[in-house]
């Protein structure tokens, strides 16, 4: 497939230079891994005047602790492969590694970035539910200044976020949790065990004092946190009865669609099954018994 649209390519050496180009040119778009943008260009589904390749910008490819040591900061050029390899991620957010391992396949993960994933914001994206559950913050910069957006407010609609023209995501920060006293699980439903898009994805965290965070992907236009269910579970043992109640509740929270990959009915059913299984996994992991991080659960 040939890219038919006309545009320029530039690779600025600094963030400032990149921001200047984006401010000046309405049709300029930033590029990190390109695994989503390049096929879209080929399909003619996006048109731009300039591709602003961010890969020469220094320090945006780093993973580190924030100065106050309260956050892990993931630069916007960090790829999924780098997340999988990172000792820091493995230590603090092994569930992020678990998610990253389900993204496409090695050669795509070597290129695709976490920041790119949330900027593309396709409903089937892998990272959405995870970042919701980890209560991530998105750090955005433009010539006008910096701002921080909570992941809860980031997504607007399929392929739409609050990112404005002229802005670049510089990093994603994840608040550290309770001295890592928590367990997490990421579950992805695909038709295949190999590379496939998510039909349903789910992140569950089990925190001290019987507190939970539960977020879903691919079952609503944007990733969604199941706060009502989290409240139901808060401080309680999850009995069969409570679980059934939560499943009924889920029907009002998520709004899956039917497409060529799965029907609405199956997605709804599987969201329930996955919630039940995810809870099992985090329960075990919380007590140090569960399967090691990075395995698939379905």
């Amino acid at each position: 497939m040939t890219i038919l649209s006309e545009f320029e390519y530039t690779r600025p050496k600094s963030l400032k230079e990149a921001l200047k180009i984006l401010a000046k040119e309405k049709g300029a778009i930033p590029l990190s891994g390109g695994t989503d943008i390049v096929p879209l260009l080929k399909d003619g589904r996006i048109v731009c005047t300039t591709i602003v390749d961010l890969k020469n910008i220094k320090r945006m490819d780093e993973i580190g602790l924030s100065r106050d040591k309260k956050y892990i900061v993931i630069g916007s050029l960090v790829t999924f492969s780098e997340l999988i390899k990172s000792k820091l991620i493995q230590k603090h957010f092994p569930v992020l590694m678990e998610m990253a391992k389900t993204v496409a396949s090695v050669a795509v993960r070597n290129r695709a970035t976490l920041a790119g994933n949330i900027c593309s914001a396709v409903p089937s994206m892998d990272s959405g539910s995870l970042l919701m559950a980890l209560e991530a913050n998105i750090h955005v910069e433009s010539l006008k200044g910096k701002r921080v957006v909570s992941i809860n407010k980031w997504f607007k609609a399929p392929r739409k976020t609050v990112l404005k023209r002229g802005e670049i995501v510089t990093s994603i920060s994840l608040p550290l949790i309770n001295k890592n006293k928590y367990a997490g699980a990421y579950l992805k439903l695909g038709r295949y065990q190999g590379e496939d898009l998510a039909q349903v994805s789910l992140t569950i965290l089990s925190l001290p004092e019987k507190s939970y965070r539960i977020a879903f992907g691919a079952v609503s236009p944007i990733p969604i946190r199941a706060s009502i269910i989290e409240k139901k579970f808060q401080g309680k043992d999850i009995t069969e009865e409570l679980l059934q109640e939560a499943k009924v509740c889920l029907e009002k929270i998520i709004s899956p669609i039917s497409d060529v990959r799965a029907s609405e009915e199956y997605r709804m059913h599987m969201a329930k099954v996955m919630m039940e299984r995810g809870l099992e996994v985090v329960k075990k992991r919380y007590h140090g018994e569960g399967p090691e991080y990075g395995v698939t659960h379905l």
């Binding site: 396949s105 295949y192 065990q193 190999g194 590379e195 060529v260 990959r261």
Partner: peptide, 27 residues
């Protein structure tokens, strides 16, 4: 796994390897 899906106008809906997926080494 596989099958071809057409809409009610006869257009093929899954004309790529993303949607008409074939098995991988893990399958």
């Amino acid at each position: 796994y596989e099958d071809m899906r057409f809409d009610d106008k006869g257009k093929l809906l899954n004309a790529n390897f993303t949607d008409y997926k074939i098995p991988t080494t893990l399958d």
